[in-house]
Design a protein around this nucleic acid. Structure first.
Lengths: 309, 309
DNA sequence: GCGCTCCATACGCCTAGAGATATCAGGTCA
DNA sequence: TGACCTGATATCTCTAGGCGTATGGAGCGC
């Protein structure tokens, strides 16, 4: 790439003159007097080394060299103007692309809400969403694969990442409606000691998995895992099929499946937290916008009320 | 088209820095010290209104806005450089396009010679050649449809056009070999008084036509035109078929057709001139080049020698 | 802590470029 | 011929831009 030889104003003058083919009019369009325009063109022609316009009395025309230069000049100017506008749009966060990782369990609750309001406020922003569990999200944030994470149980030892809790929710027990405990409004955890469990494999979310098994341990038993499933949808389906019961974040109540009941558990102290994560040193305005959206969009009412029927 | 806001050197610096992602190295590549580069980038960022690079200790990276601007900047710079080079090439006459009109009767003599040597000297120049008679050539020169004319009998009342004689040649008589006169080396014009003539229609070249009939008139007879044909090839073919005889510029001897003989005429004073024509106010270097080629390329030996057999 | 790297800042200099006004010169047309 | 249009020239002013040197300051490795 060579160093540029030609000032842009000269090219601009050239293009305008090429359109007007009249020094006076072109100067007027450029908002300058006519002599300066003559000079601009002259300087440009000097640099090019050849005449670009042929001035015959009564009419100004492009020379072959001028005809050759015109499209390139025009192109360069519009490229630049467009690129500048695009860069400004991106810089201001009006348009752009944001890469978001999210935990599968949020696909029914936090995520759609967030996407909806964000898209509404920034229709020019393209959102790339990738379903991924917590640990990969942390890694992806570090290597810039994603810009925003939506995850459960944020780690506490990350100095370069920021976390903000979006939702803190209790656990519910997932039962087939035929299960004797489904008749109660509230289930004592220990009552599940003898039921087989359907859980997500530990690898897809160690923190959550450990928290669930920890709850059981605290209640005095070790859950008997009869079956694993990688999606909450599937877990619910398996519960409905009678393969066992499950413990899950309250927000999965959104999965309405005939034959499946959700019941509050006792003790209800244990909660699982959903957080947004971002790189603290990321100055991408879209990240700021998204965090602002999260803050302004009030978190869903914690599911303590009788939201299920 | 807006007035350009951004000096090109800043864009150049931007592109180089975007490639190097290192102020020191980029500055070195630009051949300047590092602080000026910092300033360039800073000024550019000020104008854009957003940071284009994120400077974290140890590494410089493009921001989304910078990534957006980069291709446009690069494109504009290369467009410009290319356009400039192209304009210079055209301006210098190394490449380009030249529109040439030529009289049909030259297709076998002057034209191919000229094209060959010109192409050899200016391989980058595209030649558009159009067969057209004298009057249309004059008109086409005036309205810029062609840049160069190759015609017979240039008019003398054209002030805006320049003419240069390329070739001055005598007339020959075209005879079927079976014709009694074909036995002679030279034919007295008046001997053709009783033969039917095959000629080009007057409209395709009034000057030449009038000159031919004028020759006959001067010899004391009016030629009996038995047949018209618009191409010399055809004229010869018709002569060969015995439809008549013809008078033609000597250069059509190039048409070798069995059964057709060409003979010098007496008196041999009458000559037809072939000229190049151009607009005097045309500063297209290609025109100059072509005229120079014509001058340097010596005109064909006038056909007075025993060049036919 | 020391030195090194790397980028930013401060300051000064200089020039090219862009602008204005005034004037000239060639053509056209009434 | 003279008014008028159009573009070129001459001259002056001003400033943004580009570059240099000197210096500051944050990280990082030893």
């Amino acid at each position: 790439m060579e160093r540029p030889e030609i000032p842009l104003p000269q090219l601009h003058a050239f293009v305008v003159l090429a359109e007007e083919l009249h020094f006076g009019h072109a100067a007027a369009r450029l908002g300058i007097a006519q002599p300066p325009l003559s000079q601009q063109i002259r300087r440009l022609e000097d640099k090019v080394g050849h005449a670009l316009f042929s001035r015959e009395p009564g009419r100004v025309t492009l020379t072959p060299a001028g005809r050759e230069l015109l499209p390139a000049a025009r192109q360069a100017l519009t490229d630049l103007a467009d690129g500048l506008a695009a860069a400004r749009a991106v810089g201001s966060g009006r348009v752009g692309r944001l890469k978001i990782g999210f935990a599968a369990s949020l696909a029914l609750t936090v995520l759609p809400r967030l996407l909806r309001t964000f898209r509404q406020r920034f229709p020019g922003v393209h959102l790339d969403i990738h379903e991924m569990t917590t640990a990969p999200q942390i890694a992806a944030l570090h290597n810039n694969t994603i810009d925003i994470g939506l995850l459960r149980e944020p780690p506490t030892d990350e100095t370069e990442l920021g976390f903000k809790t979006v939702l803190s929710e209790p656990f519910v027990v997932v039962l087939p409606t035929t299960h004797p405990l489904a008749a109660q409004r509230t289930v004592q955890l220990v009552q599940l000691a003898d039921s087989p469990f359907v859980l997500l494999p530990r690898v897809v979310g160690p923190q959550l998995h450990d928290q669930i098994t920890g709850l059981c341990t605290a209640a005095g038993f070790t859950p008997q895992v009869a079956q694993h499933a990688v999606e909450w949808q599937t877990v619910c389906a398996l519960v409905e099929a009678g393969l066992g019961v499950s413990l899950a974040p309250a927000s999965i109540r959104r999965i309405r499946l005939k034959g499946v009941a959700f019941r509050r558990i006792e003790p209800s102290t244990a909660r699982t937290r959903v957080a947004v994560a971002w790189r603290k040193n990321d100055h991408n305005p879209l990240v700021t916008h998204l965090l602002a959206t999260v803050s302004q969009d009030p978190p869903e009412r914690p599911s303590t009320g009788p939201a299920w029927s």
